[in-house]
């Protein structure tokens, strides 16, 4: 197998005295679809926020495409990464948030165009076409000039996904992207994720409580419990054959 695109090596994270992650070791390969499940408060969000550089690990390393994300060399010594280093390494990573975080002062189309133009310095016309195509693909071709406040939650989340994909990430992180939605809007968002999973070759890490969906599209499932990866493997192995009692009791809550 080829070198993983992301490696967590013995990663710990504390907030003050609270130890949230206690030794995470994890490989993510190019194109791999990883589902992260586990009880609330087990550290799922924190794992992916560290990869997006929104939270700094207390110790351990996160390697992205062979580069240490949070550390860099300076005069032959390993030091804390500065912004320039973080920007270089996180360029291939994108994220979709639970609460969408669309930019309310920009139209839907501008939301999708601003980063490719200002961050990647791409050609405006080319970006515009790509953004429109992507918005059409998520079913919002008729809303490109609307503002986020004019959209439903499901529509907002579809824009957020389009905005991330237009940057052409190699790794996309999804943090419970359907949790803030009314139940009847969950389906349309999951459909977009399924479409991305099937037709894009980027790696995807999905933190989710949509158990059936996750098991359906994931190559690998992680069960996170109290800050450690308690189980990992193929969906079938983890769900059907695991002897882990805490996992069984966690899963039983999703089975009516």
């Amino acid at each position: 197998m080829t070198e993983p695109i992301v490696q967590y090596r013995d990663v710990y994270k504390s907030f003050g005295d609270v130890k949230v992650l206690k030794g995470i070791n994890l490989d993510i390969h190019a194109g791999e679809k990883v589902a992260v499940i586990g009880p609330s408060g087990s550290g799922k969000t924190t794992i992916i926020r560290m990869l997006m550089t929104l939270e700094e690990p207390t110790s351990g390393d996160i390697i992205v495409s062979g580069e240490n994300l949070w550390k860099m060399e300076k005069n032959g010594k390993e030091v804390r990464a500065n912004e320039k280093h973080l920007r270089k390494v996180r360029g291939d990573i994108g994220m979709v948030f639970q609460h969408f975080n669309l930019f309310p002062h920009m139209t839907i189309l501008e939301n999708c165009m601003t980063a490719p133009i200002h961050v990647k310095k791409e050609d405006k016309h080319e970006v515009r076409e790509r953004a429109i195509q992507m918005l059409e693909r998520v079913g919002l071709g008729d809303k490109i000039d609307n503002y986020p406040s004019q959209l439903s939650g499901g529509q907002k989340q579809r824009v957020a996904m389009a905005r991330a994909v237009v940057m052409r990430p190699k790794i996309m992180l999804f943090d419970e992207v359907t949790s803030a939605l009314d139940p009847e809007l969950v389906g349309e968002v999951l459909e977009v994720i399924r479409d991305l999973a099937q037709h894009e070759d980027m790696a995807m890490v999905l933190v989710t409580h949509e158990m059936d969906f996750a098991l359906d599209i994931a190559d690998k499932v992680l069960f996170l419990d109290e800050g450690v990866i308690a189980e990992q493997g193929s969906a079938r192995d983890v769900i059907e054959h695991s002897q882990n009692e805490r996992l069984q009791s966690f899963l039983s809550r999703f089975r009516a």
Partner: peptide, 10 residues
């Protein structure tokens, strides 16, 4: 945070 996720500088 969303801007950081789009790799914007501070």
């Amino acid at each position: 945070e969303a801007a950081t996720a789009l790799n914007m500088s501070s």
